[in-house]
């Protein structure tokens, strides 16, 4: 036995032991990290203000649509006796408007709120402190991702439900089926963009860079899907348009194969982005 293979032989049990330790403590370490991330969300008050902002945005849209004729009559400087014929607002259209409001303001706020989620800890060296413990890079990143998703899906549901309730009170009732379908589709789109934020946050030093790169990707994807629905209909960018269609259609939108493809590519894309960020984090756990 030459010295090289001996060294390998000697080294391997230790490595195996460490991996076994990680595997054994993997799930409990993950839960601990997740608890830490949720505490972090609460301490920074994100868990409080982000849902409130989403609810306010959700309430505003139906109110605006309802009072629009009055507002134009009172505030607009129309000559006396002008009669404006406005079609009465339709409930499902109001909900679609709310979604597009969430897609602009909501996504901007969420991406800015999460922009420093990894890069902040890497710049301060906190991530290196966590990662010397028997904690895998995967569970470290996954705990961050899950905490992001809890806040995102929760805030979106609260805000969208508030919009739905106000639309029901003021305009008309929208069925629960289309409402839930559009919620899930839109949530998937948010998940895709915010996972991109997580990836950019692991390899860019600047937090603002992470936010605007991922928002740029989001704008590019949805613009391509909007301009060339024939060729880009399978991309995740088509998801937001699909959500508007889902809520405005009378019955539950039958998803065709292209729509299924955009859902599939979004899910695959989310998995790839997560794996990519794990690989990038392993390569350099902390900035010098």
């Amino acid at each position: 036995m030459n010295s090289a293979s001996e060294a390998q032989y000697r080294e391997q049990p230790a490595k195996r032991l460490r991996n076994a330790a990680i595997r054994r403590t993997g799930s409990s370490a993950f839960m601990t990290l997740l608890g830490k991330e949720c505490l972090e969300l609460l301490r920074s008050f994100k868990l409080v203000w982000v849902p409130i902002v989403f609810v306010v945005l959700g309430i505003m849209q139906p109110l605006l649509s309802y009072f629009m004729p009055v507002l134009i009559e009172k505030a607009g400087n129309m000559p006396e006796g002008t009669v404006i014929e406005m079609p009465p607002p339709v409930g499902s259209q109001v909900l679609a408007d709310t979604l597009s409001q969430f897609g602009l303001m909501g996504l901007l706020i969420l991406a800015l709120a999460f922009m420093g989620i990894v890069s902040g800890e890497r710049n301060s060296g906190a991530s290196a402190l966590v990662l010397v413990k028997p904690v895998s890079h995967t569970s470290y990143l996954l705990s961050k991702w899950v905490s992001m998703m809890i806040l995102t899906w929760g805030s979106l549901l609260l805000g969208y439900a508030a919009a739905w309730y106000y639309t029901w009170l003021l305009i008309d009732f929208v069925d629960v089926g289309p409402f839930m379908l559009s919620y899930v589709l839109f949530g998937l789109w948010f998940t895709f963009v915010l996972t991109a934020t997580l990836l950019f946050s692991t390899f860019l030093r600047s937090a603002a860079g992470a936010a605007f790169s991922s928002l740029g990707v989001a704008v590019l994807l949805s613009m391509l899907a909007g301009l060339m629905p024939k060729y880009m209909g399978w991309s995740p960018g088509a998801l937001s348009g699909l959500a508007y269609q889902a809520v405005t259609s009378e019955v539950l939108l039958p998803l065709n194969s292209v729509s299924w493809w955009s859902i599939a590519t979004a899910v695959i894309g989310i998995a790839v982005l997560l794996m990519g960020s794990v690989v990038l984090l392993k390569r350099a756990p902390a900035h010098d």
């Binding site: 409130i52 306010v56 109110l63």
Partner: peptide, 20 residues
Amino acid sequence: GLIVPLVLLQLLLMIIALVL
């Protein structure tokens, strides 16, 4: 009844921000 929840939520947001 429709406007008050909106105003209250905005006020709450403002108060939290001011306290912080």
